[in-house]
Computed example of a mutant assay.
Amino acid sequence: MDTTEELNGTCFYAGKPNLNAAELLFMIFCENTASQFGIGAADFGAVVALISGRNNLGTRPKPVGATLGTSYASKAARKMFKKTKFPFGISMPTWLGGYTPWTAKRVMVRNIGTFVGRSIPLIGIIILAADVSAIIYRTVRDYNIIARGGDKIW
């Protein structure tokens, strides 16, 4: 966190003078975002997992109502695990149809390759959601330390 001063009802932060409350919050948000997304293997892995899960590759014709296309993650997992199934007839849940809870639907699968291929993008989403949550938490915390009484959040 950079040094702060209050000058005539405005703040000085990160070398920028005369910042109002909204500008101060934005500066702190940008600083925390840059800090969170510094070159890190987890962030890079999250983006790769998310992108590799996009179903933008062509595939065989599918029944009406099925999700069209397949992903790089799914193709690689199916190639690696082939037709291997979970032992004892166990079925595991996977998610189809989108990157939001409102567009995704749960499907039970017995094939390990299918499970892994569909789970990789979910791991990316979880890591990125954790990053966003950390950025927001630290931004509000740092802002409330600096801001004056009426400008504080919560």
Rank of each mutant, 00 (worst) to 15 (best):
G45C: 14
K75G: 01
L57R: 10
T10Y: 00
T94S: 07
Y143G: 11
A134S: 11
K79P: 00
I112Q: 07
P61Q: 10
P63I: 08
T59N: 01
P87Q: 04
K79I: 00
R138P: 05
K82Q: 06
L122W: 06
P93D: 10
L68S: 00
I126A: 12
T100C: 14
T139Y: 04
L7A: 00
E6M: 00
R106F: 13
A134F: 12
V64Q: 07
I126D: 13
T59E: 01
K16L: 15
A21K: 08
T33W: 13
R106D: 15
A41E: 10
L7K: 06
T100D: 14
A76R: 01
A130C: 05
V109F: 08
T67Y: 02
Y72R: 01
K152N: 02
K16Q: 15
C11P: 00
A14Y: 05
T4C: 00
R141D: 08
K105F: 12
G69L: 02
S119V: 08
I28A: 12
G117C: 15
G58W: 09
R78K: 03
V109E: 10
N8Q: 00
T70D: 06
C11F: 05
I125T: 13
I127Q: 04
L96D: 13
I146Y: 07
D142K: 11
G40Y: 15
P101D: 11
M108L: 13
I39G: 15
D2F: 00
N144I: 05
R148P: 01
M92C: 06
L50S: 06
M92G: 02
F29Q: 09
G58N: 10
G97D: 10
A134E: 10
T59M: 02
D131K: 11
A21E: 04
I127H: 04
L7P: 00
F44C: 15
T70S: 10
T70W: 08
R110Q: 14
I120G: 07
P93W: 11
G98A: 12
P61L: 11
R118E: 08
R54F: 05
G38S: 15
I123Q: 12
I153Q: 10
G15R: 10
S74L: 07
V132R: 09
G124T: 07
L57G: 01
V64N: 05
G58S: 12
A41Y: 14
P63L: 06
E23A: 15
R106H: 13
T103A: 12
I126N: 11
T4A: 00
A42P: 04
G150D: 02
K75D: 04
M92S: 03
W102H: 14
T84R: 09
A77Y: 04
F37P: 07
Y99N: 06
P87V: 01
